[in-house]
Nucleic acid binder design. Structure first.
Lengths: 219, 219
DNA sequence: CTTCGGAACACTGTATACATGATCCGATGT
DNA sequence: ACATCGGATCATGTATACAGTGTTCCGAAG
């Protein structure tokens, strides 16, 4: 029976920071005061700082010496850039993955779709985005390109706070569900190019909505 | 008169770590003992740890909880993966950049070529690789895709220790010089596709040599 | 001779305490 | 009234000290 307790405090902080950012408790642009956050977790500032350094490397927070750490806010252009890079990398990953997909991989895709439906019913956005991730990364990981998958994960992390806005709307959740099922079919057919195309559309739908949301936010 | 002294100690450590890794003082696979490195710089371990965390995020060092930090060693497959990702991202960046290239950008390219020739004469590998970076990134930065350029920079960082092996050989330095001049010509013609093609070849030459070097190392 | 257990060591992980730099605000002078 | 200077305050940056974990090596038992 393996406990999930992380081996170091930094990792615990890291998890909590990620969760807080994802859940919108730490909104883009706000400063993360080390003292406050450390006290909240009952730890000292050192592990907090180290976790923040990791997030800095991933681009999740912005760092200014002697000023501190701030949750990065993305403008529309940056979001578009992220999606463009994702398109390049994910297409490549999928092309490598699809021919290698095994039954377990397909099962994992199906399971992720069901998990999303279940989480959607409970209106549990965190679980929803987690299952969404499992779905997509089940398509990338069989490629065996660890480094590439890691970069893709970074890109996902960067846009997480915005994606959770997207999942807030039930309409979008339904659309995502339909598209995922189509993607699963393409995977079953081992149709790489079809799958790449479906993913492109999938992303562009998300972009359209995110543009709207960001547009409203700016007004 | 602005001193170049970094505002924080971590940054000083970071510079020194990068330099040491690039210069081969810290060989891939060796552990970086925090105490030892801190003492060497006359600092405490805290800023050293923080600098290491940044490098971890960039993939320059590997971290294992309670075991410490090790300079990452790349196997051939990982190196190939890095070059494949670079191909995807750099091609895109260049396609966006070339139409936007101004006279200053072309001048910078020419300057970088001259700097490399000069550094090559002095057998200053560090200056050589620095100028090489300036050359290539002058082709990426005008794209305006900050995030993409940053990712490309990470990939370059990861393979730096190996690239400096490559530059060790005068034969390779001459080949690189010739190829850079061809690339500059294509840039002057604003020939995006030609430039992308030249860059592809440029990279694959480097890969061929790196394979050899790594192959010998394994034996 | 091999294997198992445990104690000592070394290094990392974290907390506490102190130093430094930045910002804000009011006082002072023009 | 306004600009400038200076100090108080806050958050960050760093050092020191201690705790925890993993490893190694040695000795005893089988």
């Amino acid at each position: 029976m393996a406990f999930k307790r992380p081996p170091t405090a930094q990792e615990a902080v890291l998890e909590e920071l990620r969760r807080a950012i994802l859940a919108g408790e730490l909104k883009p642009g706000t400063q993360i005061v080390q003292d406050a956050f450390a006290e909240r977790l009952g730890l000292s500032r050192v592990p907090v700082r180290e976790a923040l350094k990791i997030l800095e490397g991933e681009g999740q927070v912005r760092y200014s010496p002697h000023h501190g750490y701030f949750v990065t806010e993305l403008d529309v252009n940056e979001l578009l850039e992220i999606y463009r890079i994702r398109e390049l990398l994910e297409s490549e990953a999928v092309r490598l993955s699809v021919p290698l997909l095994g039954d377990e991989d397909l099962a994992r895709l199906e399971q992720a779709i069901e998990d999303m439906a279940e989480a959607s019913g409970r209106k549990d956005i965190v679980a929803l985005t987690a299952a969404n991730r499992r779905f997509h990364f089940s398509l990338f990981e069989p490629s065996g390109m660890h480094r590439m998958v890691r970069l893709i994960r970074q890109l996902w992390d960067s846009s997480d706070p915005y994606r959770s806005l997207y999942f807030g709307e039930p309409v979008h959740r339904d659309a995502v569900d339909r598209e995922h099922r189509q993607i699963l079919k393409a995977a079953r057919r081992r149709d790489s190019e079809g799958l790449v195309h479906l993913l492109d559309e999938h992303r562009s739908h998300a972009i359209d909505e995110l543009k709207k949301i960001l547009g409203e936010e700016a007004s």
